[in-house]
Amino acid sequence: MTEYKLVVVGAGGVGKSALTIQLIQNHFVDEYDPTIEDSYRKQVVIDGETCLLDILDTAGQEEYSAMRDQYMRTGEGFLCVFAINNTKSFEDIHHYREQIKRVKDSEDVPMVLVGNKCDLPSRTVDTKQAQDLARSYGIPFIETSAKTRQGVDDAFYTLVREIRKHKEKMSKDGKKKKKKSKTKCVIM
């Protein structure tokens, strides 16, 4: 069974824990209790493949930012979460993405942009803004509501699919490099 290491990042209060708990335990946590770091595991079937999701729910508070490099190193894919009623959390996505790329030393890291709290009427981040940002990053965008469960499975499952595509691409690139290195030079 394939294991996928997913990391949920975003500013404090955007609903990272609520999304994760909704996926794992099928219930909505409405009281806000700032996370330092929590880890969850769940076995699911995605596109006919049974897999184990190892999900790291991270601290959004700035005082825990020193811990970010460590979990970013171990993560295979990242859910970059903002709240649709919090423009600052949307603007912060850029910083999370840049930090992930720096730590992973790669421009090509599996990510999904997630606009959470889409059940709320007080939207300050337009869907088109988020779609445009995701398009500019070359990553999928999904709106979710941890409260109603809308888009929750889709967000995590899409990230797994992005990781699969990335692994497939990397193995193809690896095979191309191996083929090239088999060419021999004969000096007579």
Rank of each mutant, 00 (worst) to 15 (best):
K117Q: 13
T74N: 11
D126Y: 09
F90E: 09
T74V: 10
E107R: 10
M72N: 03
S89L: 04
K101L: 12
D69R: 02
C118I: 11
K104Q: 13
K104R: 14
V112F: 05
R68H: 05
R73D: 06
L113W: 12
R102G: 08
D126H: 09
P121K: 09
V112P: 01
K101E: 10
V112E: 00
H95G: 07
M111N: 01
C80I: 11
R68D: 03
D69F: 01
F82E: 03
S65P: 00
Y64E: 01
L79D: 01
A83H: 09
N86K: 07
D92L: 07
Y64A: 00
S106W: 12
T74F: 08
I100P: 01
G77L: 12
L79N: 00
Y71W: 04
G75H: 09
A83K: 06
V81A: 07
D119Y: 05
S106G: 12
Y64L: 08
R102P: 02
M111G: 01
L79T: 01
C80D: 03
M72T: 04
D69C: 02
D69N: 05
A83P: 15
S89Y: 01
S122C: 11
G77K: 00
Y64G: 00
R73W: 06
K117A: 14
R73Q: 12
F78M: 03
D108W: 07
T74C: 11
K101P: 02
R123P: 13
A66M: 08
G77C: 13
G115W: 10
N116K: 00
H94P: 02
S122E: 13
E98M: 04
F90W: 14
Y64D: 00
R68C: 04
G75L: 02
L113D: 00
M72C: 06
D119Q: 05
V125Q: 13
K88V: 10
K117W: 15
P121W: 07
M67F: 05
H95L: 06
A66I: 06
Y96Q: 04
T124M: 11
S65C: 08
V109D: 01
T74R: 05
H95S: 11
R123K: 13
S89C: 12
V109C: 08
C80P: 01
D105I: 08
D108H: 13
E107K: 09
E107N: 11
K104N: 14
Y64Q: 00
Y71H: 01
V109F: 12
D92Q: 07
D105S: 08
D92S: 09
M72L: 03
F82G: 15
V114G: 01
L120P: 09
P121N: 14
D92K: 08
F78R: 00
R73S: 10
V114A: 04
V112C: 04
V109M: 05
L113H: 01
T124I: 09
E98F: 02
N86W: 02
R102E: 11
V81N: 06
D126S: 10
V114E: 00
A66C: 14
L113F: 14
F82N: 05
S89R: 04
G75A: 15
F78W: 02
I100A: 04
M111S: 01
N86T: 07
